[in-house]
Amino acid sequence: MSKTLHHGLLILRVLSEHPQGLTVSELADAVGVHRTVAHRLVRTLEAHQLCRRDHQRRIVLGTGLVSLAEPVQQDLRALARPILDELAETTRATAHLLVREGATRMRALMVVEPRGALVHVSFRPGQTHSIERGSGGIALLAHGPYREGERPAVTEARARGYAVTTGEVIPAVTGISAAVPPRGGTAAVSIGISVFEYTGLDELGTTVVRAATALGELLG
């Protein structure tokens, strides 16, 4: 294993967990290298637009990571599209695909609105919110082991197999989401629906879990 590459990748991972940025000294301490080594690594990553310095000269992730991630997201969107289409039509609700962004945020990667529904929730892809709020993030947290002090909603979602929240991302809107089972490691993608009101929660939850499982099998 290349120690230099290993440390460079560790820097990117550490930065993903600190969206406010870190100094070179803080990065050196986090990765366990001398400040001079951290400085060289940062300069190399900057040259490839993988990190940059903000107005306070703190190191943050760079836009080059977007172009690297785009092909993966395109594959994910292509695989998820027919599943989201079917979910939206089956439930007559807005279906969404959310991805974990760093340690604390969720981003809406895809939003599919039902055709022909008289009333449905509408929001744009790209919106972000805390992983601790909304059914998509709760579903991912519930996929992991119990955490001391976790929200009751996470514990309930773990037992139920899907998460339900109301008014946490959009006022008066209920979200029902399930984690997409990963091939290995921690779940980072969730599928869900957003509704103004619902009946038959168990049936909706089962349908959402079925859609998440189907996408997991395609990704695996």
Rank of each mutant, 00 (worst) to 15 (best):
E46S: 03
R210I: 03
V195I: 11
Q73Y: 15
E17C: 09
V37R: 03
L141A: 04
G102A: 02
S67M: 10
I176C: 01
V33C: 15
I59V: 15
L79Y: 02
L84W: 04
G149R: 07
L10H: 12
L41I: 07
R210M: 11
P152F: 06
G205F: 01
E86R: 10
I59T: 10
I11V: 15
T207W: 00
G137P: 09
R105A: 14
Y198Q: 10
E203N: 03
P182Y: 02
L140K: 03
L204F: 00
S177K: 00
G134E: 12
V209F: 01
V180H: 08
V180G: 09
T91I: 05
T4P: 02
L79R: 14
E113P: 00
L140I: 10
L141Q: 13
R107W: 04
S135H: 06
L65H: 10
R81D: 09
T23W: 12
Q49R: 09
P71C: 02
I11R: 08
Y162Q: 01
S130G: 13
C51T: 15
A30L: 08
A214Q: 12
I131G: 05
A108L: 13
R210Q: 15
A69Q: 15
R147I: 14
G161T: 01
G144I: 00
H6F: 13
R40D: 11
S25Q: 12
A211P: 05
E148D: 15
T166L: 11
T166C: 13
Q56Y: 13
D75F: 08
M110Q: 11
L109G: 00
T155I: 07
Y162D: 03
T91W: 02
Q127N: 10
G137L: 05
A178T: 08
G134Y: 06
R58K: 15
P125C: 10
S25T: 14
L5S: 08
A47S: 15
G205N: 04
H6K: 13
G144D: 14
A117F: 04
L218C: 14
H34D: 11
V112Y: 09
S122L: 08
P152V: 04
R100E: 14
P125T: 07
F196T: 07
D202S: 08
S16E: 15
T213M: 04
V119E: 10
T23C: 05
R77H: 07
L84I: 02
A179M: 05
A117C: 06
H7M: 12
E156I: 09
I83D: 04
L22I: 06
D202C: 00
G134M: 12
V121L: 04
L84S: 02
H96A: 13
A93T: 05
L215D: 15
G137N: 06
V169Y: 03
L97Q: 00
A93P: 01
S130H: 12
H6I: 10
V60K: 11
F123I: 02
A108F: 11
V111P: 08
H55I: 11
T213H: 12
H129D: 07
I193H: 01
A187L: 04
